[in-house]
């Protein structure tokens, strides 16, 4: 009886292991497929031409992705410049400077907003932000600025809710100790609470960054998508993600392969950014 059970147990363990390898196999399959489709053309025309070429004219076999690489990084940076200060400030205010009722009400509401589909953000950007920029700052309105602001707003709920969790996780005894030493509330926050919550805050920012660089539809709607290095914040810009989504439908042959190459580069950039961010988080944590 016992042996019979353990035999069954082994079978269950084995099948569960197979299931558990699904996550890994899915990752492997995706990586293999994207690289299999993208690498040959990169090898054919040279990695340097893809990374540093400035001309994207697939019909003339010219596959320079530099404008899109710069575009993705620029727009992500812009999103962080807008989303991080607003997000952290809100989190600090709601946890440390407001009464519990307000933060108790606002936190769940803000978390609910994190689920709003990105296309909705893009749509409102198109309806309100783009005309506003065109009228007040000039240019076509579809621009680096519009994309940055929309992405910045989009990642706000993520950053706020994770930052609030991180700050709340700091033990109250830390605060009490600091206040007892005569520090003001702000001094306590700045010198005790924030450093203690650092790794959580960084994690929230990393997550926001990941969402910003990976976003596609909202960006296509407001960025203008010109495949050119943007000359100013008011110039249109194309990201790696929108390059894929814009042209996938019509592409064939080498053009399509070049879009997979775009995917490969996006993939690698995201892995590098995640790695760097994790490294930074760990380093700060050790301090």
């Amino acid at each position: 009886m016992a042996r019979h059970k353990s035999g069954g147990d082994r079978l269950i363990r084995l099948s569960l292991l197979l299931v558990a390898l699904s996550a890994i196999s899915v990752l492997a399959i995706i990586t293999i497929f994207i690289f299999e489709q993208g690498l040959p053309i990169m090898a054919k025309y040279g990695l340097k031409n893809f990374l540093l070429g400035q001309d994207w004219f697939p019909s003339e076999q010219s596959f320079g992705l530099l404008p899109m690489i710069v575009g993705s990084l620029l727009v992500t940076l812009g999103a962080l410049v807008i989303g991080v200060p607003l997000g952290l400030a809100s989190a600090i205010f709601l946890t440390e400077f407001s009464n519990r009722r307000l933060s108790g009400f606002l936190k769940p509401v803000i978390e609910l907003l994190a689920g709003i589909p990105s296309v909705v953000y893009g749509f409102l950007g198109l309806m309100f932000l783009v005309p506003f920029i065109r009228k007040n700052f000039g240019g076509p309105g579809l621009s680096v600025l519009a994309a940055s602001i929309i992405l910045g707003i989009m990642i706000l709920p993520t950053i706020i809710s994770i930052a609030i969790d991180a700050i709340r996780a700091v033990p109250d005894s830390y605060r009490e100790g600091s206040i007892a030493l005569g520090a003001t509330r702000w001094q306590t926050v700045r010198m005790v609470v924030l450093p203690a919550a650092r790794s959580g805050l960084v994690a929230g920012i990393i997550l926001g960054m990941g969402r910003a660089i990976g976003e596609t539809m909202a960006v296509i709607m407001v960025a203008g998508n010109a495949a050119d290095l943007p000359g100013s914040l008011l110039a249109p810009v194309r990201t790696l993600t929108s390059n894929i989504a814009l042209e996938m439908a019509y592409a064939s042959g080498e053009h399509r392969q070049a879009l997979f190459a775009t995917g490969v580069i996006l993939f690698v950039i995201i892995m590098i950014l995640n790695f760097l961010a994790n490294l930074a988080a760990r380093k700060q944590f050790r301090k």
Binding site: A20, I30, I34, F260, F267
Partner: peptide, 29 residues
């Protein structure tokens, strides 16, 4: 069904990476 070890770490790493992949890449795939 298992103890913390290389296998679990690899599986978790895989899941984490998967979570970081943008949806457009899933679309391409």
């Amino acid at each position: 069904y298992t103890f913390e070890g290389t296998v679990t770490r690899i599986i978790r790493f895989g899941a984490e990476c998967l979570a970081g992949i943008p949806s457009i890449i899933f679309g391409l795939f």
